[in-house]
Computed example of a mutant assay.
Amino acid sequence: MQFKALTAAALLSLSSAACVPRPSELPAGSRFSLMALRSASPVHFATFSATKSSLFLNLPDQDATCDVEDPGYATFYLNEGGLYLYAASATPQQIYADRSGMGQGKLGYITGAQPPPRNAELDGWVVDEYGNLSLDGAGFLACPDSIQGSWSLWIDAGVEQPAGNSDCLGISARTVEVTDPISCQYTS
């Protein structure tokens, strides 16, 4: 009887070990795209795009000026807790989030010397052990019926339907390393 209990305990510990998260395979200093994860939804596996100082999913045309043909998705990198759009130029485009009552989780980006909006958070972006990006642990929301039929992206600020949007979905933002990044300047 005791042998069966020990065997069961050993098997349980082995199966639990298989569930332990593995470290993210995103090397420091990497350039990456972001892919939405929300099973059985219209945005599952959609890539993040950038245009008009905002971020979107399922955007048909991000209208970026790139060194070569626009890949149709945005490329990002982290630097000292800040999240940036990748461009080879000296003018960085930095992602911000406004989780104040006014911003309700607004995501956007600023260019170069442009000052951030009043309640903008620029730092605190991290990639967890699963390869998911968050802002100090806060995930993302995607809301339908935005420009060109896309989904607008928001940081989860505890508001289920930010800015009057409806049918928003919580998503995970999985990082996908881009080994040969394309330098783009995104519209503001």
Rank of each mutant, 00 (worst) to 15 (best):
A163R: 13
T111Y: 02
F3V: 12
E177P: 09
L11W: 02
V43N: 01
G170R: 14
S166W: 06
M35V: 14
L12F: 11
I182V: 15
C168A: 06
C184Y: 00
I182P: 00
H44E: 10
G29W: 05
G164E: 07
R38F: 04
S152Q: 12
P23D: 01
S30R: 10
P115M: 11
A8V: 12
S30V: 06
I110H: 02
H44W: 01
P23S: 01
N119H: 13
A120I: 03
A40G: 09
G103Q: 03
S54I: 00
V178A: 01
E177D: 11
W151Q: 02
A50V: 00
D70T: 02
A64I: 00
F48A: 02
R31H: 13
P181E: 01
V178G: 00
Y84V: 06
Y73H: 15
T187I: 04
A28Y: 05
I110P: 00
Y77T: 07
S24G: 08
A163E: 13
G81S: 11
A28R: 14
Y109A: 05
P92K: 11
P115R: 09
Q161T: 15
E25R: 15
A8L: 15
S41A: 05
D123M: 14
V127Y: 07
D136L: 15
R31Q: 13
W154H: 12
G158H: 07
T75I: 15
A18S: 13
S134M: 03
T51F: 03
G137M: 09
P162H: 09
P27I: 05
A113S: 12
S54D: 05
P71F: 10
Q185E: 05
S49E: 04
R174D: 04
R99F: 07
S33C: 07
Q148N: 10
G149K: 04
P117E: 08
E80A: 14
D123E: 11
F45Y: 13
S33D: 04
